[in-house]
Structure formats: structure tokens, C-alpha cells
Write a protein that binds this DNA or RNA. Structure first.
Lengths: 209, 209
DNA sequence: TGTAAAGTGTTGCAATTGCAACACTTATTA
DNA sequence: TAATAAGTGTTGCAATTGCAACACTTTACA
């Protein structure tokens, strides 16, 4: 169950979904899920699984814009999907719940006293997503790969509360997240190790500065 | 009056602000407005004026993360401001309304029937901000300055509904938005002109492809 | 209205980076 | 468990980019 339903009982969630006229779909791996929903005004909640939002540029290249995981929301509330340059692919079996945006304020739902909890959860989810986006923008606007790496490591250290922490994504994913070439990133990491800025043991990073 | 109060009468807005215990502050130009509010959980609405959110890196450089204009919101709902590497400076005289996040669902406010309009406006604002962020991420993740420029121009053409449109920011601001060196960007624009991709007359861009 | 500030365009040069092509290790799954 | 896919590390080379230092134009404002 995602954060959208935090502090709600199972019964309340059931009622909510019913009144919101939500529907849940389970997709197999590698399915393009935006195919026929691109122009609807809806909220999609990832109940389980994960997605990749990709941009197809003019010469056929595909760039990963972002990865979406269980608990996150997407849809028109988060991304203008009104062009066919964007595709959204399931990375694994993925369960998604759809809610039409206008249902959020329909006449019946606001009668329920737990409605305010739902709204607060939704605002929190959007807010969290926005925080993540801004955090990423902060890194993406840095000039060099070195700055991006150190920016990322610093932020992780801050979150984990320690100068030693475990990476919870692969280096390949990190390169994609920072939008740099993976091999160049590896090279820069080597330099950082040589120059004594960091120490790396498998997925364990230690900041030495 | 910002979008947060769309579809609300002046009387309702007044009531709302009162119940939300909001307060409005007017700042002069070049004021650091985050100085003593960084750890509060609040929403700030820019009533008028504009701001620059900046990142101060380890060697004292300042990078503009984003510009915030009238009608936009910021604060903990949009950005984790829990480090002192971020500063937020007024670009001109700027009026800001602060609302504590928890007031949004206080006992008194939910009694008002116009409350749901306010909530819907807030969700819309967050959603718009998120759309803008994701749009920018799409551009920032592009590999070359050329791709970023064409990506930006395409998006503008799509918004304006024409292959000819007027830039509503300066080229200097565009370079900052795309996070590339301004002079390098100008060089790339020259190449695009030479190669017949675009035509530029002052602020009027025409896409020739 | 005159002066300062901001924006624009250009170019040489060095540094960074992406790309490509490897070899090798670790996960995944049929 | 064997085979396939995904992830990691390295390196040469070329292309892109940032930086710096200009000159010039436009805008802001005292």
C-alpha cells in the first residue's frame, strides 16, 4: 500500500477507491503503459513494481528521464505527456492504480471525514516528488562530473547521517541519474579515489574530506 | 493575486488567510529571505516580484538552481532547505505570503465550503511546478548543448503553437536554465543558424526544420 | 539624459567528456 | 546449472564545452 493511503484504514481505502472510481491494472514487464492514456487528466499511483520514463529524441535515441518506483505517482499531475516523444515502460511486473483528477473533488467524496487525510497524503506525495526533482536539478546543473558526484555523495551522506554509507543504486543507474557517460563517470571516480577524496568498497562509499 | 486563490472571492480569500494564520511580508531587492525560516514546514507564495534559488558550492561559487516568479510557490513543500548551501535572494521588491503547512488541515478551515477550492488550487500549483521541473530535467539530461537548445525551441514552438515564436527570457537566462556556458551556447546557436536549422531576429526564433 | 549595469557575439585554448571497444565480474533466469 | 544479461573498470581519441578576455549593444535608473 502506498503513502497515498497512509493513516487510512483498509476499509477507508476501499471506500475511497470506490468513490474515486479508481481502477487498478497489472502490467507485465516491458510494457509501454502510456499508449492510450496520454491525454487523460489522471493520477497514477505505482502500487508495486517500477517504471522508466523515457524521451525519444529526433534521431531515435532513448534517454531515461527518470525511474519511478513503488509509492510514487505520475501522470498529468507530474508530467506533461502530451507529446509522443515520451514513453513509459514497466521494468518488471507493475501494478498501477488510476484515478481521474476531477474525481478528487467530486461531490460524494468530500462528505467522508477521512477525505482530508487523503488530500493531505496527496499533497505530501506531490511535495516529495517535487523535492526529489529539485534535488536532481541541483545536481544536473553542476558543471562537471566531479561536482555532480561529490554533490550526490554529500547528499547521501547527509541523508544517511554518516560519511560512510551504502549506495542503494548501481553505478550505471547513477550515471543515468546524473546524465553523464558511465565510463567517464567511472574514470572520474578513479581520480577521486587516487586523490584521496573517497574510498569505495563494492557499494560502500566513505568520504575522506 | 496568485493562482492559489483562483475561483475564490476576495471575501473568501480574506477569510482563508485569516483561518490559515498566513502572514505576508514585503522584501526589498537583494534580500536573502531564507535566513531564519529554513527549518519551518511552510508554504510560501510569491504574490509579486521574483526570486533566485541559488546553490553555494564548496569553493564559494554560486549556481542559480531556479528562478521563481509571481504565482509560484516554494518552501519545504517544494525544496528541502535543510542545508545552508541554499540561498534565496529577491531579484526585485517581492511580496511573499507564508502559510504553515499544518494549518492547511486545521480544524477550523475544513468547515468552510470553499476549502475544497483552495485545496484543488494548491494541488494544481504543485502539479504545475512539478511539470516545469520535469520539463527542465528532460532538457538538462540531454547530452549536448545542441540537443538542449533544439529541445527547448521545440517545446516553445509546441507551447506557442507555431514554428515562429518570441523568446520570453534572455539568452543569458536560457544558458543558465540549460546549465551551459553562455558563450558556448551562443557559439552553438551560430552553428545552428549557419547550418540552416533556425533563424533569429532579435528575440524572434523561427524553426526551419 | 548620461552613466552604470546587463546582455550579446566572437574566438583561442585547454580541460572535460562522450564514444567506442575492450575484458572481466556479478546477477538473473530458462 | 548453464547460458544470457547486466554491471563494472579501463583507455585512446575526437568532439564538445567551459573559461577567459574581448568589443559592442541594449537596458536600467539616479
Amino acid at each position: 500500500m502506498t503513502n497515498l493511503f497512509a493513516n487510512l484504514s483498509e476499509r477507508e481505502v476501499k471506500k475511497l477507491m470506490q468513490v474515486l472510481k479508481s481502477n487498478t491494472i497489472t502490467y507485465r514487464k516491458n510494457i509501454n503503459i502510456l499508449s492510450n492514456r496520454t491525454r487523460d487528466d489522471y493520477i497514477a499511483i505505482i502500487e508495486s513494481g517500477s517504471l522508466q520514463l523515457m524521451f525519444n529524441d529526433y534521431n531515435g535515441n532513448k534517454t531515461i528521464i527518470e525511474e519511478l518506483n513503488a509509492g510514487e505517482i505520475f501522470g498529468s499531475l507530474t508530467y506533461s505527456l502530451n507529446n509522443d516523444e515520451i514513453t513509459c515502460i514497466t521494468k518488471e511486473e507493475t501494478q498501477i492504480t488510476y484515478i481521474e483528477y476531477n474525481q478528487i473533488t467530486n461531490g460524494e467524496i468530500i462528505k467522508n471525514d477521512f477525505y482530508i487525510i487523503f488530500v493531505k497524503n496527496l499533497i505530501k506525495l506531490l511535495s516529495d516528488q517535487l523535492n526529489r526533482c529539485n534535488q536532481r536539478i541541483e545536481l544536473l546543473t553542476m558543471r562537471t562530473t566531479r561536482d555532480k558526484l561529490l554533490g550526490y555523495f554529500n547528499h547521501q551522506a547527509q541523508i544517511k547521517g554518516s560519511k560512510t554509507f551504502i549506495m542503494n543504486i548501481t553505478f550505471t543507474e547513477l550515471a543515468s541519474y546524473l546524465s553523464v557517460d558511465r565510463s567517464s563517470m567511472t574514470r572520474e571516480i578513479s581520480y577521486l579515489k587516487e586523490e584521496g577524496f573517497i574510498k569505495i568498497n563494492n557499494k560502500k562509499i566513505t568520504l575522506l574530506y
